[in-house]
Amino acid sequence: MSAFVVGLTGGVASGKSEAGRCFEALGIAVADADQAARDAVAIGSDGLADVVDMFGAGVLAADGSLDRPAMRRRVFADPDARKRLEGIIHPRVRELLHATCAKATTPYAIAAVPLLAEGGGRQAYPWLRRILVVDVPESVQLQRLLQRDGIDELLARRMIEVQAARRQRLAIADDVLVNDGSLDALGEKVAALDRLYRGLAQQDGAA
């Protein structure tokens, strides 16, 4: 079991997913909050039943699954609806992530949580031993979004603005990975962090 868990987060288009893949390539278990969010409202789950109870059967697709595009449009237009949906999903995501990391057999585990700052930070995730923030300047985020998603600048800026501010993410960080270079450079930085976390996890286990 991995008692030493590192929270991995970062803004949109910061490269946090690629950083997660680099940790996986080094043999480290990575639990993904996006996957946990899908599992939390899977067909037949209590989470999906609670969503239907709160929002009505109109949120379901023809196959009985959550109609994600429709739900996304609804909560994007209604902050109160978004808070109510988050109240159903976020506790389940935290529980699933914690359970997945606890079962990991690697020296330590990574909990990849894109909205860690927005979701309560350390207070919501007290079992995280360290928080790693993948950081890039906003100008780099903007450029990557335009190239990656093929969207206009107005939408790209809006996607950045609806997330926590860069300073808010950095405020909860124990470690900061500046990802403004090449994939090779990112891999080298992740390898250095991996050595750090393996050492810390070993010390933690010995204590």
Rank of each mutant, 00 (worst) to 15 (best):
V75A: 01
E138P: 01
E161D: 08
G11F: 09
S182V: 00
L128W: 15
F55C: 04
A206K: 00
Q143E: 12
A206V: 09
L48K: 09
H90P: 04
V12C: 03
N179S: 10
A13C: 07
M54S: 13
G58T: 08
D180C: 02
L196T: 15
A102D: 07
D46Y: 06
Q168C: 02
G121L: 02
V133L: 06
P107A: 00
D80S: 13
L196C: 09
L200Q: 15
A62M: 04
L48R: 13
L48F: 08
L170Q: 07
R84S: 09
Q35N: 02
Q147I: 09
D53Y: 08
A29W: 02
L146C: 09
V178T: 12
D152C: 04
Y197A: 05
V133H: 11
L170K: 04
A117T: 09
L97P: 03
V134T: 09
I28S: 04
A201C: 03
G44L: 10
I151F: 00
A171V: 05
L96A: 13
S17Q: 08
K16G: 00
I43F: 05
R82E: 12
G27A: 04
G64Y: 08
S14N: 02
D67N: 15
F55K: 06
K189C: 07
V75M: 01
K189R: 15
I43N: 05
V134R: 14
D34Y: 08
D194L: 02
A173I: 03
V176R: 13
A70E: 03
L154R: 15
A185T: 01
R74V: 01
D175L: 14
H90L: 15
A102R: 14
D50M: 08
D152I: 08
A201T: 04
I160V: 07
A40T: 07
A104N: 05
G11T: 14
A42K: 12
V133S: 10
F76Q: 13
T105C: 05
M54N: 09
D184I: 02
V162K: 07
S14F: 04
Y197I: 03
A42G: 08
A42I: 02
R21C: 01
I28G: 01
L48Q: 10
V93H: 11
R94I: 13
A185Y: 00
G11H: 08
D152R: 07
A49T: 13
D46L: 14
A171G: 01
D80V: 15
A104W: 01
G44N: 09
F76E: 10
R21I: 04
R84C: 05
P137N: 02
V51Y: 05
E188N: 06
V5R: 11
E153H: 10
P107T: 04
R122N: 12
L128M: 15
G120W: 02
L193Y: 11
I151C: 01
